[in-house]
Structures are given as C-alpha cells and as structure tokens.
Computed example of a mutant assay.
Amino acid sequence: MPAGLSFLLSNTEFNARGSGVRASFGTVDQARDALASGAVDFVGGALGFDTDGLASLIAPEHVDFTAALRPAPTVDPMVADMLVTPDAVHRERVVAAIAAIDAGEVEKVVIARSLDARLSAPATPEELLARFAATAGGATIFGADLSAAPGHAGAWLIGASPELLLRKRGATVQCIPYAGSAPKFDAAGRPVAGAAESLRRSEKDLREHAYVVDYLRELLAPLCDEIVVPDRPQTIATSHVWHLATPITGTLTDPSVTSLDLAARLSPTPAVCGTPTAAAARIIGEIEGTRDFYAGTAGWCDASGDGEWVVSIRCLELDASRTRVRAWAGGGIVAGSDPDAEVAETTAKFQTVLSALGG
C-alpha cells in the first residue's frame, strides 16, 4: 500500500496515522540510527516478541496526528471457517507450564493459544481497524505494515490493545502494566457476579501482577531519577475482561533516551512472557513454538524521542492475500494456577478479535 495507510495508533487521548512509505527498517538498530542521523523524523510499526529479532518499522511519507479513527458503521460476520487450539490441548500446555514452575525452572510463564480463520471475502487493513474501533471500547487501536520483516511482505498486525507499554513525553515516561485477569462474562454471556472484587483479592493474580511491576521498576531504575509506583493495583475493565493494572511514572535522568530505546528495553514484560525472562521465553518456544509479532509491542517514536507503545495483544495478523488471519490469547501461569480457569481466561480474551470479525 505505497500511497495508503502504513501505520496507525489511535486511542481516546492520541492519534497517529502514517501514510505511504518513505523508508522501512527491519531492525531496531536501523530505525534508531535513521532517527539519530536525521534521515527520518518519525518511525511507527511493530517489534516482535523477541525485540532482538523481528521488527517492521516504517518512516511514513506523511503523519497525521489529528484524524481520529472512524468506527465501522456495522460489523457483519466475515469468517468463513475457523480453527482454534482445542481446550484440551491448551489445558495440557498449562499443566506443562505448571510442571516447569514446580521444578524451579521459572516463576511465571505466559502460555497462549491460537485462532486461525479464513475470511469469506478479502478484508483491507482499514476495514479491520474500523471494526476493532467499533467493538473494542476504550482500547488502543493499532495497525502496522509488517512488510519490512523477512517473510511478512504484505502482512499486517492489527488489534485493540488494553495495555500501555510506555508513553514518553520529554523526561517523563509512563507505563501501565496489566497482569492478572478475570472474565467479565460466563459461557452463556451473563456477567460474572463479583468478578472484579474477586480479582482484587486474588493472591495468585496479585502475585502474577507483582512480577510485572517489579520487572518494570528494575529496568527503569537505572534510567530514572525518580519512579512513582502505587502500593496496590487498580482493577480496569475492557469489553470482555477485568484486569489488574498499576500506573508507573518515571522521570528520566537523560531525556534523550527515546521511546524506541525504551520499547526495545522493556518488551516483552512478564505480563506476556514471564519471569525470569530468558527461561520463560525458552519454555514458551518449547510449548507454543515461534510467536513472531504476537506479545511484542506496536507504537511510534518521533525525532525528539517522544512516542507511545502498546503491548501487541488482542490482535491478529492479516496475511498478504487479505483472506486469512491468525490471532492469539494467553494467560499468565504461576504456582497454584488452575488449568481449567486458564482455558476460560483465554476464551474470554479471544472475544476482542471475534467481536471485530463479527462474532
């Protein structure tokens, strides 16, 4: 799409829409060097789950910070057929993850399942973005052309992330990690009574959440003069899921540290990977296989280093034919996790993508 949309990030506070492709970069280092040299003044796109691996970062020909994303007027069904990792298979994966935790290999690991769908007719990135905007409530809608990444020519990453990885403005950096969650509705679509209060009191979920907060504080501490972290998380609702969330604010010692630098440093957090990071990533690879762009980060960075990045969850990858999509849903596994509850949690998290696809 050389003259059309190449990148988008839109929420209730901010919009950034890139059009055309002035330059593209397949690694963080390439994009960082181009920004530092003044060759480009803005990059937007996605970093893979392994930030040292896949990346697709675009310097658009034009960036519009004013045009809000228009939701789709209707969201008709568009799925011809669909295949989801079976409940029993995902349950076995969770059991394997718990065994690794019990063996002392890892403290937390996030295990995901996938959904593959064939669309009844080709869909454009703009159409899918508008559908997410119509169905995903106050989430951040994001879209990134993945063509700069090897093997992803013509593909797009599109979704509605509830989770801000970081926002940088001048010397101020903000993170709002999500970890620990509960479905808002049961299998029959009825609200789960007391779900938010149960989540607030859940020792398992509070422990899972603390891993993420501690991780971010530890990585930000060497870069900041001050970090403010509340004592307890909040409960925040998306369209289908309750989450524990903690707003973190830091003051950078060196404001020239860019949002791209921070995104590469902080992603993936324990909210989508686990802890220790290397051990959790290894277990994910053994149990799931390669994640590519799922559970990485999508966002932008300008010439001043400011920018905004979200965690790439509640998303799908649209292939070059525009007729097939793959989506994912995961949950954090810690000691004491209930395999059946974890299956239910991923089912609830799939609803963001399924709603955008028309049910």
Rank of each mutant, 00 (worst) to 15 (best):
M1K: 10
P2K: 14
S6M: 07
N11C: 12
E13I: 11
G18P: 00
G18M: 04
R22V: 01
A31P: 00
G38E: 02
F42E: 01
G48Q: 06
F49W: 09
D52S: 15
S56P: 07
S56A: 13
A59E: 00
A68L: 13
L69F: 09
M78K: 09
A80D: 15
P86Y: 05
R91H: 10
A97W: 02
D102N: 09
E107L: 07
L115P: 00
A117I: 02
R118D: 10
A121Q: 14
P122K: 09
E126F: 05
L129F: 06
F132L: 10
G138P: 14
G143R: 01
A149I: 01
P150Y: 03
A153I: 00
A153G: 07
A153M: 10
I158K: 04
A160D: 05
S161V: 03
P162W: 05
G170D: 03
V173F: 04
I176C: 12
I176G: 08
A182F: 02
S202F: 11
K204C: 07
R207L: 14
V212T: 10
Y215E: 03
E218S: 14
E218Y: 06
C224R: 00
V228D: 15
D231G: 14
R232W: 15
V241S: 10
W242M: 06
W242R: 02
A245R: 01
T251Q: 14
T251C: 13
L252Q: 04
S256N: 13
T258H: 03
V272P: 01
P276A: 04
P276V: 10
A278M: 12
A280R: 01
A281I: 03
I283S: 09
G285N: 06
E286T: 05
G289K: 06
D292K: 10
Y294E: 05
T297V: 13
W300D: 04
C301M: 07
S304W: 10
G305E: 08
D306K: 05
G307Y: 07
V311D: 09
D319K: 00
D319A: 02
D319E: 11
R322K: 11
V334I: 06
P339E: 08
A341Y: 10
E345P: 02
